[in-house]
Amino acid sequence: MSRDTTAPLPTGLGRRDFLAAASVALSGGMAGCAGVFAEEGNQVNIAGSSTVFPVTEAIASAFSEKNPTVNLSLSKTGTGGGFGNFFCAGRTDINNASRAIADAETEQCGENGITPIEFQVATDALTVVVNPEADWVDCLTVDELRDIWRAGGAERWSDIDEDWPDEEFELYGAATTSGTFDYFNEAIIGEEENHRSDYHATERDRTIVQGVQGSEYAMGYFGFSYYSENPDSIKALSIDDDGACVEPSIETAMSGEYTPLSRPLFIYVAKESLADPAVRDFARFYMERAATDLVSEVGYVPITEDQRDENLAKLDEAIAEVTE
């Protein structure tokens, strides 16, 4: 391969020039060996929760329209998968998380010299759904839910209520790499019991929708946005925490009535990555937009303006530390 003349770019060259040069080099099939291993600048890598994915996708899309030269990558790995395999291994700059980071994960990050900074970006109403044909059930108590989803608990609908059909549950839930699984496990199952393992576990929420649509005796759980997009084909159950049934909705999640399944959604930014201007710009853009309709359009509750200001202050503080 011949050396390509555009390769050793002087630093100071504008982004647009670099992009033009890079695309010429690529499309001409002249991508020479020198220069391509140049620094990985202008790149923001994000992995993590599939629940937070649509929020980040919406914000990244808006960001990309203003900054078309920044290369932003986004994958669905589940919260735990994202922390373990990508974020704490130093492979991504930002992790989407539908639960707070665990101690073991903070430790793993620390060993690799990565300091995660937590920002709440939205609130979700984790939604339990059944088939619309299942007319016998509209509301479940937390205890009943625990009995259905714990290991060694109920096997049939009639085990919960004798009037309900004598049919086995067909259960669809989040995979164990998922923050949705962790949150459900913590909020419903609790520490004394284990989440059952004989259910269809997936990181693709669409599969849960299809599974629940397919069987009258099915039940599943996932983030509210997947329910709000399919309100006719699946039925959301109200949750009775302390005597009153509350249906999942943006309003009840915002007001805090929908307990215990309304949960905060986070992104974690690696403090060290903030030294990169592209990551810095994106993080600031994210914090500003998290309080807007961009979030409610994908089916979650935006953070309040106070929370936003708090996030921005936290971000600026971290940026000041790494850029000094």
């Binding site: 890598n45 899309s61 990309s64 290369n71």
Partner: peptide
């Protein structure tokens, strides 16, 4: 990554491809 914004700016940039994006949209 299933989804990428912006264009690759070096050979080490993360890259998505058409079938991958289609697979992602299907979910």
């Amino acid at each position: 990554p299933t989804t990428v914004f912006g264009v690759p700016n070096s050979l080490l940039s993360k890259v998505s491809a058409m079938p991958l994006q289609i697979y992602n949209w299907a979910s």
